[in-house]
Design a protein around this nucleic acid. Structure first.
Length: 586
RNA sequence: GGAGCUGUGGAGCAGUUAGGAGUGCUCGUCACCCUGUCAAGGUGAAGGUCGCGGGUUCAAAUCCCGUCAGCUCCGCCA
C-alpha cells in the first residue's frame, strides 16, 4: 500500500516516486497551493498540492485534520530558505500527484498535539487518540525495547520463560485478591495472581533452575501514581545461587537496558545499604539518593534537655531527628506553619523548626528552651550554616524517622533540590523478616513467609523476632522501589519455625500452601529470586511521573476503564450460571 | 476509611479572595478569501445546564451544604 514511511524521507530520496499513507497532522491551505503534514508511525513529512496537479489540490482542500490519506507523489528538495529544521524530513517535501481519502475523521475531542496536555480523563476516554501523540507513543516503544532487551539478557544467562496460571488459588496473606467465580463448582472461586511467587518456587523444585517471566499481576488495593490494580512484573527465580549472583545478574540486566534504550552508561556495582541504615539516614526503605539532606540523630544533643517535647520523646525511648534545609531561613512564618501542617496531616503531633542566624544563634519558637551548648552541638551535628533552617521531629523512633523522611522528600521537591539528570540505583539489604501488627497483636511477614532469615538472625529469631534480618533485597532507583526479592527458605525446620512465629499452625499451613510444602519434601534446591515492577521501570526510563503514562490502556483511581466502561454490571443469566446473587449496594 | 486540589463553549486557561447581565484570552470548528506555508494568514460566524442537586440572597460561576468525576497523598499494597 505504501512505499515509504513519512518520517524516513531525506534529501537523498530526491526524485523518488513514493506512496505514503497516514493521518493528516495539519493542513495549511493557501487556496492556490495547499500543504498537508502527513503523519505515520515513522514521523511527519510535508506534502504539497499545487495547481500542477489539480486533482490532488482539489482533494487537499477537502481533507481535515486526522483524515486518513494515501499520497502518491515525488520527493523533492524544498526551495532554498524553506527548510524546516524542526522536522527530520525538513529538507524535503512530497509533491503530490494524487491524494486519496482512505477515511474521513471527526474533529478530535482534544488536539493531537504534543504541546497541549488535555485533561487526563478526556485522554483516557479516547485513549486511541491519545496514543497518536508522540510522548505516549514513545513510551510504548520504550517499553517494547525494554522487554526485548530483558528477554535477550535473560535468555543469554540461560533463563527460560515459563508461563504460570492466571486462574489460581486465593491466598489470604498480602493484598486483597481479585476473584473469579467458577461455573463448574458454584460457590468456589479462582483468584488472579498477586505474583507468580509459589509457582516459581515449584519450578525450582521441578529442576528448571533458571526461570523468568514477564507476568501480569493483580492486587485489589487502592491506587497511586505508581500503582494500578493490574501491573506487570519481570519475575525471575534461580537455584543454587545466593545474593551476590542476583546482584550481578540484575546489575548486568539494568546496565544493558539503560545502555540500549537510553544510551546511558551505568556504573555497577550499585551501592548496597542495609535497611536499618536507610531508615536511620533517610527515613525510608527507598531512599532518593539524588540529593543529600540526610536525617540527623539528635538524641545525644538533647539528652537532658529543657525542651519539653524533646525530653518527653527521649524519656519514652523515642528519638529526636533533625533535618537541615539549606537556605531555609528564607521561609516565611506561614510557610513554616505549612510544613507543621504537613507533619500533622501525617499523624505527627507537631514539627519544630529553627533558623540559624548570622551569629550562629537560633530564631525558633524553641530557642528560649535551648542552652548554648545544645545550640552549638546542634549546629555541629546537622552541619547547618547561617541562613539554613533545621526541622525537628520527636517521638517514637520508627514513626519519627518515617515522618522526617517524607519531609526530606517534600522539602527537596518544593525547593527544587533534586538533580533530575541522575540515575541513583541502590540495593537495600537485610530488611526485617517480621513486623509487629499492633491491631492483630501478632507478627506479620514483611516480605512473604518463605523469605529466609540470615544465618546470624536464625539463632535468636524466637527471642527477638523484630530483630530478625532477612536474606532479602530491594532495588531502588531515584527513590522508587523498582524490584524486590529474597533467598527462600528451603529447609523444612526453618520454615516451620517461621510459620510458628507468624502464628500459622501446621493445619493452616497445609491448607494454604500444602502443595508447596509437599513439593519441598521431595528435594528443594537452595533458591531465590527477584521481581521487578516493569511499569515503574519503564516510567523512570521514559521520565514520566505516573505508570499510567507507560500503560496503553490504564485505569482511573476508582478502578474504572474510562473507555470501555469496565467494570460493568452483568446480566441475570450470567449470574445464575455462576450461582451468584448480588446485593443492592447502599 | 481519611485529607487536599481540580471541574467555566470542542481543547487549554483567566474570572471565585471581595456576589451584580455568560465577561475575557489563546487554540480549534464552520463559511468565504488567499500560490510557499510549516502553531500559515485575512474577514466573518456558530458554539455555554459555569460537573450535578439543594440552600442563603433582591441577585450565585463566585458564599454554604450535599453529591459525582478526575488527580495527589495518608491508611492499605505478604
Amino acid at each position: 500500500m505504501r512505499t515509504h514511511g513519512a518520517g524516513t524521507l531525506r534529501a537523498s530520496d530526491d526524485g523518488t516516486a513514493v506512496t505514503l499513507a497516514g493521518w493528516v497532522d495539519r493542513r495549511r491551505d493557501h487556496g492556490g497551493v495547499a500543504f498537508l503534514d502527513v503523519r505515520d508511525r515513522t514521523g511527519i513529512v510535508q506534502v504539497v498540492a499545487d495547481p500542477e496537479s489539480n486533482a490532488a489540490l482539489q482533494v487537499a482542500h477537502d481533507v481535515r485534520n486526522e483524515y486518513v490519506v494515501a499520497v502518491h507523489g515525488t520527493v523533492r528538495l524544498r526551495p532554498s530558505g524553506m527548510v524546516n529544521e524542526r522536522l527530520g524530513t525538513g529538507e524535503v517535501e512530497v509533491a503530490a500527484s494524487r491524494v486519496e481519502i482512505l477515511a474521513p475523521a471527526e474533529t478530535p475531542p482534544f488536539p493531537i498535539d504534543d504541546r497541549v496536555e488535555a485533561d487526563e480523563i478526556t485522554r483516557l476516554r479516547h485513549r486511541y487518540l491519545d496514543l497518536r501523540r508522540t510522548p505516549v507513543a514513545r513510551a510504548l516503544r520504550m517499553r517494547s525495547q525494554a522487554t526485548a532487551v530483558i528477554r535477550e539478557v535473560m535468555e543469554a544467562h540461560g533463563f527460560i520463560d515459563v508461563e504460570t496460571p492466571l486462574l489460581t488459588r486465593s491466598t489470604p496473606e498480602g493484598a486483597r485478591d481479585f476473584l473469579v467465580p467458577s461455573r463448574m463448582r458454584p460457590g468456589a472461586f479462582y483468584a488472579l495472581p498477586q505474583s507468580p511467587q509459589l509457582f516459581k518456587q515449584l519450578l525450582m523444585v521441578a529442576g528448571v533452575e533458571r526461570y523468568y517471566q514477564i507476568a501480569r499481576c493483580f492486587r485489589d488495593e487502592d491506587f497511586r501514581a505508581d500503582r494500578q490494580p493490574e501491573f506487570t512484573q519481570l519475575d525471575l527465580e534461580a537455584s543454587f545461587i545466593d545474593e551476590a549472583d542476583i546482584y550481578t545478574l540484575v546489575e548486568d540486566l539494568l546496565t544493558t537496558i539503560w545502555s540500549r534504550v537510553l544510551d546511558v552508561k551505568l556504573d555497577p556495582p550499585f551501592p548496597r545499604m542495609p535497611y536499618a541504615e536507610a531508615m536511620a539516614r533517610y527515613g525510608s526503605d527507598k531512599p532518593d539518593l539524588r540529593f543529600g539532606m540526610e536525617l540527623c540523630d539528635l538524641r545525644d544533643v538533647f539528652a537532658g534537655t529543657d525542651v519539653g517535647v524533646f525530653a518527653g520523646a527521649l524519656d519514652a525511648d523515642g528519638t529526636v531527628v533533625g533535618l537541615c534545609l539549606p537556605g531555609g531561613g528564607q521561609l516565611t512564618r506561614k510557610q513554616f506553619d505549612g510544613w507543621v501542617d504537613f507533619a500533622r496531616s501525617r499523624g505527627a503531633k507537631g514539627l519544630a523548626w529553627a533558623v540559624v542566624n548570622d551569629d550562629a544563634t537560633l530564631r525558633s519558637p524553641l530557642a528560649k528552651f535551648m542552652s548554648d551548648d545544645e545550640t552549638s552541638a546542634l549546629l555541629t551535628a546537622t552541619g547547618a550554616e547561617p541562613g539554613d533552617a533545621i526541622f525537628f521531629g520527636a517521638g517514637a523512633v520508627g514513626a519519627t524517622r518515617q515522618l522526617m523522611g517524607a519531609l526530606r522528600l517534600a522539602l527537596a521537591r518544593d525547593h527544587d533540590l533534586i538533580a533530575d539528570d541522575r540515575w541513583e540505583f541502590c540495593w537495600i539489604t537485610e530488611p526485617p523478616v517480621f513486623e509487629w501488627n499492633d491491631d492483630e497483636r501478632r507478627w506479620d511477614s514483611v516480605h512473604h513467609p518463605f523469605t529466609a532469615p540470615t544465618d546470624e538472625a536464625l539463632e535468636t529469631m524466637e527471642q527477638t523476632p523484630g530483630q530478625t534480618t532477612a536474606r532479602a533485597y530491594d532495588i531502588v532507583l531515584n527513590g522508587t522501589e523498582i524490584g524486590g526479592g529474597s533467598i527462600r527458605i528451603n529447609r523444612t525446620d526453618v520454615q516451620q519455625r517461621v510459620f510458628a512465629l507468624l502464628g500459622i499452625d501446621e493445619q493452616t499451613a497445609a491448607e494454604r500452601f500444602g502443595f508447596l510444602l509437599d513439593a519441598f519434601a521431595y528435594g528443594a534446591p537452595p533458591h531465590g529470586g527477584i521481581a521487578f515492577g516493569l511499569d515503574r521501570l519503564v516510567m523512570l526510563l521514559a521520565g514520566e511521573d505516573s505508570i499510567r503514562d507507560v500503560i496503553a490502556f490504564p485505569k482511573t483511581q476508582t478502578g474504572a476503564d474510562a473507555m470501555t466502561g469496565a467494570p460493568s454490571s452483568i446480566d441475570a443469566d450470567q449470574l445464575r450460571t455462576l450461582g451468584l446473587r448480588t446485593r443492592q449496594p447502599r
